[in-house]
């Protein structure tokens, strides 16, 4: 049983539904949970009373789906009245994102967990490995799957037309900080540093998060090398600079890699831990992602 009023377009601020609703002619309580693209706001109904409603926070189409809730969560509010509670998740799918357009074009099923702009926990991301150490892999987050490229502007050409071949888009020149001329920034303390154009969010894959089996025997060097494009999932927000990522799943791991530390050709996976460069037969070790989902 799912309710999906897919045609309703909402603008930010527009009320979608109250958080609780009594179904007509029955004792069933409908509970609505605010999902992505929505927010909860208190609306004054009269001078004294307010209603809690779920309002849209982005422009898009409303999807309301019933979800199964473990009974434990339901009890705490309504265990005295033995009423049946149905729970619905309210999400607003944005008007467009790279993946949405792609899925529409190819008539694929629209994925439910459309990501809005920022990598969040449990989002699947595509990262580029920038540095490896014995214990962890450093990388930058290029794209959020089912969302967009993280940066609209890749920073190409900021240091000159061809400089990106020798210098990374963000590095090289003096800081391009936009900090000094900004009018003010009431919302943050001034300790934060802004980054340069083309500088991505960063992530870390710790060696124990590389694969799910034999975690203690993982060798980072046999799993990832700088320049590899890796599909991973976000574990947590991490610290000030890095997200924490994991590739401990069959469909996570290297998706694109070049042989001989990036100077060779594109390699193809042989099995889950070997890749081959078909032009010269070099076989290198990688933790490969299963390319079939």
């Amino acid at each position: 049983m799912s309710k999906a009023n897919t045609d309703t377009v909402v603008v930010p601020g527009q009320y979608i539904t109250p958080t609780y609703k009594l179904q007509e002619d029955s004792n069933i309580i409908e509970k609505y949970i605010s999902g992505r693209g929505t927010t909860i706001s208190q609306i004054k109904a009269s001078e004294t009373s307010t209603i809690t409603v779920i309002a849209a926070s982005i422009l898009g189409k409303v999807y309301i789906n019933e979800i199964e809730v473990t009974s434990g969560e339901v009890e705490d509010k309504n265990n005295e009245q033995k009423q049946q509670i149905k729970t619905f998740l309210v999400v607003v799918i944005p008007k467009s994102s790279t993946y949405l357009n792609f899925q529409k074009e190819h008539q694929q099923a629209l994925s439910n967990s459309i990501s809005i702009n920022l990598p969040k926990e449990n989002d699947i991301v595509l990262v580029k490995v920038t540095k490896i150490t014995l214990k962890q892999v450093f990388c930058e987050i290029l794209t959020v799957e089912n969302g967009d490229n993280v940066l609209k502007d890749s920073g190409l050409g900021v240091n000159g037309e061809l400089s990106h071949a020798s210098v990374s888009p963000s590095g090289g020149s003096a800081s391009l900080s936009n900090y000094q001329t900004v009018a003010s920034s009431q919302s943050t303390m001034s300790a934060a540093q802004f980054q340069d154009i083309g500088e991505n969010f960063r992530g870390v894959i710790r060696s124990q998060d590389i694969r799910s089996t034999e975690r203690d025997r993982v060798k980072v060097i046999e799993s990832y090398k700088p320049g590899d494009i890796v599909r991973a999932m976000i574990l947590s927000l991490g610290d000030g600079s890095n997200y924490y990522l994991t590739t401990a799943r069959n469909d996570f791991g290297v998706i694109f890699a070049k042989s001989v530390n990036g100077s060779g050709n594109l390699m193809y996976p042989l099995d889950w831990q070997n890749m081959i460069d078909v032009n010269n037969g070099i076989i290198e070790k990688r933790k490969c992602a299963n390319p079939f989902a």
Binding site: K152, A183, S185, T188, E199, L237, G240
Partner: peptide, 21 residues
């Protein structure tokens, strides 16, 4: 509008917002 773009330094649990006209 440019953002969300990363900031580095100490962990900040919410976004920073600036306007330049």
């Amino acid at each position: 509008v440019f953002g969300p773009r990363p900031i580095r330094g100490s962990f900040i649990d919410r976004a920073s917002f600036s306007v330049e006209c």
